[in-house]
Each structure stands twice: as C-alpha cells, then as structure tokens.
Design a protein around this nucleic acid. Structure first.
Lengths: 337, 337
DNA sequence: AGCGTTACCGGTAACGTTATCGGAAATTAT
DNA sequence: ATAATTTCCGATAACGTTACCGGTAACGCT
C-alpha cells in the first residue's frame, strides 16, 4: 500500500501552504486564479483524492450508513438494492452487515459500526432477537436510526414496513372466497413481528367469516423450507386435516408444496396454498403458488429516503411509519373457482 | 448525534494524561494497577469505544475490506456470506458495493472506496466491464486486491474461481452420455469470462466425442430468464432443432424450461436440459433440472482467506489461483437412461 | 503622503489516538 | 547515604484535512 498523495505533497511541490491548496481545491474565492490552476493541474496529475478518514474525523461525520440485516435472502437482497440505489444517489456509502439471524452477531455488528464508522443506522432485526438493548444504545447516543421490514414496536424511530396484517387478510380472504373452510397457517418464530402480524390478519379474517381456527392449525416453525415441509407432513396426517394452508413465506410454501405432493394430494383441488413474498420461484413451480407481493425494492427505497430525510434534520420523524400495501397474486395453487 | 466519550474525557475526569489512559486501556506494563483499574472502571461506565477513524488515520489502515460485486443474486449473496463469515472472524469489516452490472457504477464504487476507506479490495467484475483501468488503478496504488468468481485474466492478483471449463465438460459429457446428439448452449455476454470458459468446456467435450457444434446452437444472450426464454423459443423453432440445451446459469435454464414446456416438448425425452449454479430452485421445478454446483459459499470463504493471507504479507500471492472443482447434480431434466 | 481597502496567503488549532522520548519519583543496590 | 535502577507518567508529534485568525503587499482614495 503506497502513500496516497496528500494536500501536503502538493503544497510542498508548489511551494505554497496546505491551507492555500485546500482552498484552491475547494474553489474558494480568495485564491489567485493562477494558483488555483497550478494546484488543480498538479492534483490531477498526482491523482489526488481527499482522505475521507481525515475529513470524517474533522467533521464528525462519515457519510456512511450502517445497514444491519439478518441475511441476504431474496427479499432482503432486494430491499438492500433499493437502499443502495437511493443512498448512492444521495452521496452516502452503505455498509451492509449480516447478522445471520443471530442475536450475538447482531450485537457484534452494531458495536463495530458504532465505533464512529457510520453516522446512522438502518436496521432489520434478526428473528432470534428478543432483547433490544443494542438498538436502544444506538438511540441513547442520539445516532439516527431507521427500522425496516422486521421492525421493533416499542422503539421510537421511523419505521418502514409492509402492512403485514393486510397481507394476512388478503391471503385468507382469498382462500375463503375460493371455498376453503379449514385453513391452516404456517407461521414463523413466535417473537417475529412480521409473522405475528400476518397471522393476526389471518385470525381476524377467520373471525369476520365466523370461522374458527383449530389450534392444531396454527403452527410456528423456523423460517425455512425443511421445517415447513415437516410441519406440513404432520398437518396432513392429523385427524382434522386442513383444506388450505397459508404460509408466511414462499420458502415455507415450497416446503409445504413438497409435502402435499408427496402425500399425493392435489392443489388446488384437495388443498389450497398461498405463500408470501412473491418471489420469482413461486410462478415457476408446479402448481404455481399464489403469493403476497411485498414490494421489497420499494420498501428499500422508502427506507433510504426516510433515512436521508432524518439526517437532514426533519422533525417528528420518530413516530413516522411508512406502511406499504401488499398485493396478492393469485395462481394455480389456490384458484379453484 | 451526541459526542462520543473520548480518551480525553476519561483523562480529565481522572486528572491524568491521555497517554496514560491510552496505555491503561491497552494494558501496557508501565501503568500502575491502581490507575489501570480506575481507567477501566470509568471507561466501562462511560461506555468508551475507541474512535476507529482516528486509529485508521494514524495507522494508515482501516481493517475494512471493500467488496465490489455486480449484484446480489443467489450465487453472489452466498459468496458474500462466505466472505463475511471469514472476514468477521479475522476482525475485518466488510463493505459491500453493488455495481448492478454497470461499468459506470463499478468505477464510482471503486473510486469511493479508494478514498482511504478500505485497505484492500475483493472484486468480482460486472458483465458490462470491458476496460479494467479502474482495477489497475487499485494495483498502481499498491493496494491489495483479490479477484473472485468473475475474474480478469490479465491482471496479476490472487484469483479464486470455479473450474468453469470443467463445469462445461461435466455438463456436456453427461448430456452426451445420455444419448443427446445435438447439444445447444445458452451462453452469457460475449466478454464474460465465466461464460466463455463454460463454453470452452462444452466445445472441448463435443470435439472429444467427434461431435460438431452447429453455429446456430451457440447463443449469446443476456444473463437472465427472459432472454433465455426467447432465445430458446427461437432455438426450438429452428430447422436444426437441438435435442439438448446447456445453459450457463440456472436462471437461464428456467427460461429455457418455460419455452420448452410451452412448445409442448417433454424433458428429458424430447429435450435434455442442464443448468449451472445448482440454486435451490432447480430441484423444485418440474421437471427438476440438472445443474452444476459451484460451491459459492466455499469460494467466498477461500476468497476471504486469500485476502487475509495477502494482507499478512505472504509473498508470491499475485500469481496464485485457487480453483474450486464443480460437481454436476443430475436430475430429471436430463436423465433418460 | 498617509490612510483604508482589497486580494491573497500562511500559521495554528483541532478532530481522537498512539509511539516516542524524557523526566520525576520510588525503589533497590552498594 | 549515594548511586543506579526501576516504575510510572506527561508532553509532544504525527496521521490528513479545514476553519479561523492574522498578516503582507498592492492598490485606490483624499
């Protein structure tokens, strides 16, 4: 690693002071045009780039956003892409850290970024996280914080998220409308907000239609395909077999689909199936799976915009909540009318 | 954003010098145990964290790796996960920038990170990139650089990549063995190294078996599903219709699959299909698609390891090339014997 | 000629940290 | 008791940059 050219190098070469070089580079009015030209010529020649560390240290801001996410699955990668796009545009650099759904790593990541590396955070908490001291610590230090997707309710910060309840409602309404009566739900871990909200929509809709959810039809399982597969196998073997399943993610829907196929049952005839996220994959499997689109890219962009607005000192952001409306895409797996 | 506690705050509070505080915190031998205890107690109480900017400025190193990738699709996200894991373990922070397959954004990203933000690069070039001046500039400044996955041949840096030729060979050998005679290939953009290498394996294998590739059976198209779908439609409508297709990505295989199904042809009977990457999706579609596993996570980890080794001053890294062997997973789409 | 004004530039401090040097006090050795 | 050593700590400079203050020279005005 070679020494980068600094303002000092230029100053010495031109036999002027660093102050003047600095001013010349910033096009300050009180520098002779001639001097400016010389400085600029030399700085181009030496490929001078200001040292951002020094600037950050001086100005106490890094123009870097710390983004902490639980993983890089399709949905989150799409959201990050949205964040990235808007942030880059606005001159921010983004630092993405994966917590890998681990509470411990989430804390480590937060701590590291807190070492004056970033001047704000955009966070989606891991499914394992039940204690939010590390998040609160961010706020204690008065560092801007925006939450997205997997938000935390009792923290006062701008929140950008899907209307998860509505997603649950849309999915369940649709299944009922298609004539399904015994609708089961494959939910995520019990403390996962987004899962609970989707379930809330589900329960609420059942109630509206005077249907009752069998206790055995509400399954909490880990957020992945394998668990969903096994849970579905059990569901299908149970006495009171459901005639439809709503899963709160597409990966879980795929797991369910495999179990259903294996059992020799047909969709949508014997069993209806609706997933969540509307990942590309769901339209490629057979049968194509209905799914709730959550507009991840939009959520990402809105998140970055909220962050920028917050940084620009907008007031009353802490209780702002941007809620994106989901939309159900109906496909073969649940369409029997 | 509140003022962080600094070493100075502690020094003033305890009426000692900042030097002593610094030493006490680093457990230097020449500090009284009593003083050390006092400093540590107060630093805990004030939640002191050293300012990494100041340290980086002083030591001329940031312990941050700049990772530049073209996008965050399944394969690259998996690789990043591998990089992340190893890097975090070794105390590095990772800065991921997406170029979004754009040459321009790749340059912008490189430039930004070059502003003394990172002390080394891990790069996978975008498919649009044909000029590598920005990469060479990294090396001109003697900044460590590791290339992975989409490497650039005429740049002297450690390279970690798949044995793409072998992947092409495995896929093609398999198709020939299954009795397919007229094997087409859906390749990526013409300047994309990984695509060309996979194609090289394909051509090489045809030659071994004294088969000739019809010129019309070699298609270059963009790296996505839609283009592959359309290219396949054309292929299937052509006079000399192929009886097998090898695509250099799974997303392209999916596109091909859709076109084949639409045409009413059956796999593996009428047409054999083999993809590349072995993404989870390929075992979920019907028919399940054979695909070449590229061990993305391993590649990511190996990349980070090479980077760390390089940083530790290991010699002769610049001509090191780590080549991971792929492995074909055979599924319904191509198994007719 | 003397004064004020303008144009231009340099010096210094500061951001937070540590390495280096040097020095005072305390301890040990003679 | 004095010298020699050890123990402990403080001051300073440095990393690269800019804000701020100040100063010199040239110019214009009366």
């Amino acid at each position: 690693m070679e020494k980068q050219t600094t303002i000092k190098d230029i100053a010495i070469a031109l036999n002027i002071s660093t102050s003047t070089v600095s001013r010349a580079l910033r096009d300050a009015p009180d520098v002779k045009a001639e001097t400016k030209a010389a400085v600029k010529a030399l700085s181009d020649k030496l490929d001078y780039q200001p040292n951002r560390l020094a600037l950050s240290l001086l100005n106490r801001q890094t123009n870097t956003i710390g983004v902490i996410i639980p993983n890089l699955d399709y949905v989150l990668a799409t959201m990050v892409k949205g964040i990235d796009e808007v942030a880059l545009e606005a001159g921010y650099t983004v630092m993405v850290c994966q917590s890998d759904e681990s509470y411990g790593r989430e804390i480590v990541n937060t701590k590291r970024l807190l070492d004056s590396l970033v001047d704000g955070f955009i966070v989606s908490v891991s499914s394992e996280t039940k204690i939010f001291e590390h998040i609160k610590k961010i706020q204690d230090k008065k560092i801007p914080l925006v939450l997205f997707d997997r938000i935390v309710n009792n923290i006062a910060a701008p929140k950008i998220r899907l209307d998860n309840i509505d997603g649950g409602v849309q999915a369940t309404e649709h299944l009922i409308e298609q004539g399904y009566k015994k609708i089961a739900i494959l939910a995520g871990p019990e403390n996962l907000n987004i899962s609970n909200k989707r379930m809330e929509g589900y329960l609420q809709t059942l109630k509206t239609h005077s249907l009752r959810a069998d206790k055995g039809h509400i399954i909490h399982c880990d957020f992945n395909q394998q668990y969903a597969y096994e849970a579905t196998k059990e569901l299908l073997a149970s006495k009171n077999r459901p005639d439809a399943i709503f899963t709160i993610s597409d990966r879980m829907a795929i797991g369910a689909m495999l179990a259903i196929k294996e059992k020799g049952l047909s969709m949508p005839h014997d069993i209806g199936l609706v997933g969540f996220n509307n990942e590309p994959i769901v339209s490629l499997v057979t049968p194509a799976i209905s799914s709730v689109e959550m507009y991840a890219f939009e959520i990402g962009k809105a998140t970055a915009r909220a962050y920028i607005e917050m940084m620009s000192g907008a007031a009353g952001m802490s209780d702002q909540e941007i809620i994106i409306k989901p939309k159900l895409f109906i496909r073969t797996s649940s369409k029997r009318r």
